[in-house]
Design a protein around this nucleic acid. Structure first.
Lengths: 138, 138
DNA sequence: CCTTGAACCTCTAGTCGCTAGAGACATTAT
DNA sequence: ATAATGTCTCTAGCGACTAGAGGTTCAAGG
């Protein structure tokens, strides 16, 4: 049985965040002491670890809710869980693709300024101002 | 002179977003008709295009504010503008690195479920539950 | 046993960058 | 003249927290 602060230390999830997870239904409300303070057991610790791990991997609260529901009903959970994880993976990959395009464009823009003999106008600013200079479809 | 809807069509920035940019000071308040409607000129169009392009590249509102200020004071603007763009670039790169780590881990997790002869427990769920199975420092 | 100080409680509001809706007024086309 | 569309302001909501106020409870030392 540990306090919310202890749980926080063990999971590296901040105290207000733990309470937030409870309000949105990710964590079930734990027992309380006579003085109304939360007391968690090993199951609470495991559930929060699970949540933290999933959040670190970028799963939304909603997706994590689904995963937790699947945990509680182990029949046929695997396919559904894999689907959620696969969706998350394709989401991550889409973000990577987009960021790589941004990287390329930003590199081009910042490089334009690096040489000494550049024009009098700032290449960063003109690049942003004039869409025609952009080598990127958007 | 065009209306906010016209400006929206030309820049692909939604009408409420344009108004939002005005409230946060990214766009200067334009002239109004007798009936209190906004009327924009070419300068307003150019400024909004600049903002949209910068937002597409992931610059924060704050960063764009700085860039716009630099535009208005062209002395020494280039170095400062390049600094902002370089910061943005390194930000993007950090995000890419992190997402690639996520991609790897998610791939590992989802792959674990794909084979037919998997264990009875769902690999996705056990991976998320048990941090020891994770090949990723976090 | 009593006091101190840290940890805990609830509640509200703020973050970022919009987006959606209500209810009222303006403009434009027929 | 009327109808349809566009525009106005204002407020509230999104996700996932984070910060702060103001009050209560716990654990340890004297």
């Amino acid at each position: 049985m540990f306090s919310i602060g202890e749980l926080s230390r063990r999971t590296k999830v901040k105290v207000p965040t733990i309470r937030y997870y409870e309000t949105v239904g990710l964590l079930t409300a734990p027992e309380r002491t006579e003085g109304n303070q939360r007391r968690y057991d090993r199951a609470g610790l495991q559930r929060l670890s699970f949540i933290r791990h999933a959040r670190d991997l970028g799963f939304s609260i909603e997706a994590i809710s689904s995963l937790i529901e699947l945990q509680d009903h182990p029949d046929r959970s695997c396919q559904a869980a894999t689907d959620i994880a696969a969706a998350q993976l394709s989401d991550v990959r889409a973000k990577i693709r987009r960021l790589r395009a941004l990287e390329k464009e930003l590199l081009r823009i910042t490089k334009g300024c690096d040489g000494e003999g550049v024009s009098e106008d700032c290449y960063v600013l003109t690049s942003l101002a004039d869409h025609e200079l952009c080598e990127w479809e958007h």
